[in-house]
Design a protein around this nucleic acid. Sequence first.
DNA 1: GCCATGGCTAGTA
DNA 2: GCCATGGCTAGTA
Length: 107
Amino acid sequence: MNPFTSRVIDIIKSIPPGYVMTYGQIAGMAGSPRGARQVVRILHSMSSAYGLPWHRVVNAKGEIAIKDDESRFKQTIYLSDEGVIPGKDGLIDLERYRYVPVDMSER
DNA sequence: GCCATGGCTAGTA
DNA sequence: GCCATGGCTAGTA
């Protein structure tokens, strides 16, 4: 597996309950700032095999971007179960719920 | 060719 | 709304 792919998987697995990350944020953290779509692909195809908390990933606007209605609904439920509730505008407040891991090398 | 993006712009109000 | 972007694990043998 490509290093980028395994980094993305590790990052996604590190998102704690009650928090979300964005596709672009994950891609950038994995070393490919333009790789948001790869994150999408990984989430789409490898979530079940790797037990990824796929529901904790949203787009840059704080939207649940998944297309499939059923999965979309599940994501909404999973997030609300963890306390992540969209605002009146339907968007998840990233200021509040975004997970920003502390980079140990910068301490 | 696929995919659940992201960021910038045109066009409107 | 448009379009540049990029790495590759889909699946019902």
